[in-house]
Computed example of a mutant assay.
Amino acid sequence: MAKKVKQSKQKKEEPIILVTNDDSIGAPGIKALVEAVMDLGRIVVVAPDKPQSGMGHAITIGHPLRLQKVAFIDGVEAYTCNGTPVDCVKLAVDKILHRKPDICLSGINHGANHSINVIYSGTMSAAMEAAIESIPSAGFSLLDYSMEADFTAAKIYVRKITEQLLKRKLPKHLLFNVNIPALDAGLIKGIKVCRQAYAKYEEDFIERTDPHGRKYYWLTGDFLNFDKGKDTDVWALNNHYVSLVPVTFDLTDYALKKELETNWDL
């Protein structure tokens, strides 16, 4: 009897890891993420039922949200949601877990989320929503857009970082943006803690005409890095490191705030 009580207590104390993404429940990246950490706690997956890349921090207010339990990996509880990545996190906490998980992991995204991408990324917005709710979180991205991408090396670093998250006493609003170069594990030099590079997209809208003669536009553009620093995420990735950027959702410009308070006649 005592042994059963002890086992029950151990199971109760097992950390809960919420897993989500923006590429949808069917993306290989989320499966790779779960495979990397599934023995580290109770994994609960709540992910969009269709791709939601570029949705940023959007939430659904104009139509009903639905959750559906689905088959995923044996032994892993998983649900799809018809909303955004942020909706997935909100519903997971309120309607599935009925409590906050110990950590939230988002990804592994197919494609980069370095520098300015963090603003647009559904992957990072899901992790950020969790951090806003006092759930330490990390978003993971592999610099390979292909659905046939090799996640072998990415899984090694996902696990390494997740183990660190679970073993430490963390700030409740902790949020990591982790990008992994598309290289064999032996070619990756390690993890570099970075700042976000100053970079942006030089955008262009290609104009086309549909079969009905109506114009439509297709967004394209080139990624331009204006930041020559060697402490940035773009530099780290270009030099075969995994980049880890600690992110905050407080958008206050504190230097400008001080300037306004001191020198402006307001």
Rank of each mutant, 00 (worst) to 15 (best):
P15Q: 06
T80I: 14
L187W: 02
I103N: 02
K31I: 12
L67W: 02
T152C: 12
D39I: 13
N239A: 09
R195A: 01
A2S: 04
D253R: 09
I16R: 02
K69G: 02
L33N: 02
D184M: 13
A236C: 10
G139E: 01
C81E: 01
L91F: 11
L174C: 03
A36D: 05
D184F: 14
T60V: 14
D102I: 08
K90S: 09
K172H: 11
Y216C: 03
V178I: 15
T162E: 01
R195E: 03
A154G: 05
F151S: 08
H110N: 11
V37L: 04
E202G: 00
N179F: 13
L175M: 13
H114N: 14
K257P: 00
D253A: 08
V234G: 00
F151R: 06
V70E: 09
F72I: 05
Q10G: 03
A154N: 02
D49W: 03
V37R: 02
I43T: 00
C88H: 12
K95W: 12
L142M: 13
D150H: 08
L219W: 12
L183R: 08
S243L: 13
A153G: 01
A130Q: 09
D144L: 06
R66A: 07
R168E: 04
F151Q: 08
D144R: 09
E207Q: 14
P48I: 14
A197E: 03
A182T: 00
S243W: 12
T262Q: 15
W235D: 15
I108D: 06
A153V: 01
K169V: 11
L174G: 00
K169D: 15
P64T: 09
A92D: 03
P101H: 13
D23M: 08
I96K: 08
V158N: 12
N179C: 15
Y198V: 06
L142C: 11
I59Y: 13
V37Y: 05
S243T: 03
K189M: 07
L224W: 03
E14C: 07
R99M: 15
F226M: 01
T20A: 11
L174V: 05
D94F: 12
W235N: 12
V93S: 10
D102V: 09
P136Y: 05
D49M: 14
L40P: 00
Y145K: 08
E148K: 15
K4I: 11
D150W: 09
V118K: 07
I132R: 15
L67Y: 04
S146Q: 10
G213I: 08
S137D: 07
H98Q: 09
T252N: 07
A138I: 13
V76M: 13
I96G: 06
T248N: 10
A71Y: 11
E133S: 10
D250N: 12
V234E: 14
K169W: 09
T80A: 11
V70R: 07
K6Q: 05
R208D: 06
D94S: 15
F249D: 02
I191W: 10
S141M: 07
Q52V: 07
R159H: 08
